[in-house]
Design a binder for these strands. Sequence first.
DNA 1: TGTGAGCGATGACAAAAGTCGATGTTTTAC
DNA 2: GTAAAACATCGACTTTTGTCATCGCTCACA
Lengths: 189, 189
Amino acid sequence: MIEVLRKHITTRLGNDLDHLDEVLSSFKHISTKRNEQLLQQGNICKNVYFIAKGCLQVYVHDKDLNETTRDIVIEDNWCSELLSFGSGKPATENVRTVEPCELFAIDRKSFQTMMETVPQFDKVYKQILEASYANSVYRINTFVSLTAFERIKWLMEYRPLLMTRLSSKLIASYLGINKDVFSRLKAKL
Amino acid sequence: MIEVLRKHITTRLGNDLDHLDEVLSSFKHISTKRNEQLLQQGNICKNVYFIAKGCLQVYVHDKDLNETTRDIVIEDNWCSELLSFGSGKPATENVRTVEPCELFAIDRKSFQTMMETVPQFDKVYKQILEASYANSVYRINTFVSLTAFERIKWLMEYRPLLMTRLSSKLIASYLGINKDVFSRLKAKL
DNA sequence: TGTGAGCGATGACAAAAGTCGATGTTTTAC
DNA sequence: GTAAAACATCGACTTTTGTCATCGCTCACA
């Protein structure tokens, strides 16, 4: 499993990375069931997770206690509540596993140590942050102006795997539409 | 005018910042009219702007050529298309002035020089990026689950200045609702 | 001073989305 | 293996939102 992470890192930072084994050993391997809570809103986000296998959901509760899913992250990607992780302030979002997962977690202290000892490592944080930001900007710019039906077609086109892999309820909360509406519109595709 | 920028920086990075005058002199002062295009989608974003006075709009065009406004940025804040500025790739968004503005612009080359010569300066980029990301995350998490009426009430509560300062058309495109709907709902407040 | 462009408001209507209750299915827990 | 819980779908209905045409106002400017 750690090979997935090794490959991910070398692909991005090059094969000649010093201390690669040291970097890898600073991650802790975690196997989870589905529906495990990795972060609760209000707590401080202690880890950045690399997903070797499985799927995570980043979400909040709206005023009616419905879940609103900001992001769904699958294998070979990083997931965290970066703003809390970076600042040490309480998280505004929740994170849970959607499927059984194989994760590699690095905590703030180890992350800090890596930043100091491995020169290229501070690029990692910047890369994750920039990728997360790009993702958010894209999401705002596309979704704000799309109808429910267009959002579904968008998902079919750009993240088709999710359509088959996730529950309708979860997809609807990711697309920001009502689950009954999602069910009806899906039938019209 | 440059005093606004000086104060902004010292407030965040401390009074004892070395090279402060050098930093300040790497910015170019720009006075604009309203409705000036600072960045066109597809071009490379050359500057980061500090707004000493005025207001900028960051927007895209949807499939029907309507404008969707991702952000409205007022004085004492930074504005750019960071993903393009940071990577040198074409911008996905447009930026224009909404009012006559007093701006301080720093281009990529000067920014790079500052990063190298002024140790604290690389914090600036990280701070701007983190603030932008926080802003986007917040926008997604709140807006996705709000009705048009609730979005208007949100604006009244959290950015009341914008209600009086901007045109209805612009506010509607920021809230992601139709301008006629905005007009009707506003009357019911 | 007149003219035209842009803006904001509004009524009438159409379309989209949300709500609720019922029902059958699948998954989970013991 | 079975009961309970969660999920997906659907019809009927309500509410919200979008569209379009119209009208009056303001402002820039020839």
